[in-house]
């Protein structure tokens, strides 16, 4: 199941959803559920780690928005190769590392794994561009 690009995409979407739950859980500890379930008209700082998780989620949503069209293009264009599966495996592993390193506040390594995920996306778009025109 981890050998097809769409499956790896669905897996990563699930991981981002779990990250969102972790973020809400961390924020519930600092500002409480009554504030989180309110309309949040006055912005409250969430605290260091929940804010890092917030930025992790924001960054992951951008990553999903970039990777999803690439996977769709590779799949529907019929240009998948073992290397595109490998790129998605690298992407998922890099993004899991990103989600772990960001809340821990580890610099450089976080940027390095972000770049690995980004390069994997670029590779998928390059392959998608080789799809024949119909």
């Amino acid at each position: 199941m981890l050998h097809s690009e769409p499956h790896l995409l669905a897996l990563y979407a699930l991981i981002v959803a779990i990250t969102m739950v972790v973020q809400v859980g961390a924020a519930a500890k600092t500002v409480g559920l009554p504030y989180l379930s309110s309309a949040r008209d006055a912005q409250k700082p969430l605290g260091t780690v929940p804010e890092r998780l917030r930025r992790t989620v924001d960054n992951s949503v951008v990553a999903l928005a970039l990777v999803a069209p690439a996977v769709l293009l590779v799949e529907t264009g019929g240009v998948g190769i073992p290397q595109t599966v490998l790129a998605m495996q690298v992407f998922v592993l890099a993004r899991i590392a990103f989600a772990a390193l960001y809340p821990l506040g580890i610099p450089y390594a976080r940027t390095a794994v972000w770049a690995a995920g980004f390069l994997a996306i670029l590779f998928l778009y390059l392959i998608a561009l080789t799809a024949p025109l119909t």
């Binding site: 769409p6 499956h7 995409l9 999903l64 928005a65």
Partner: peptide
Amino acid sequence: LILFTIACVT
């Protein structure tokens, strides 16, 4: 929507 899009497409 990004999560839902991926769910529907996959």
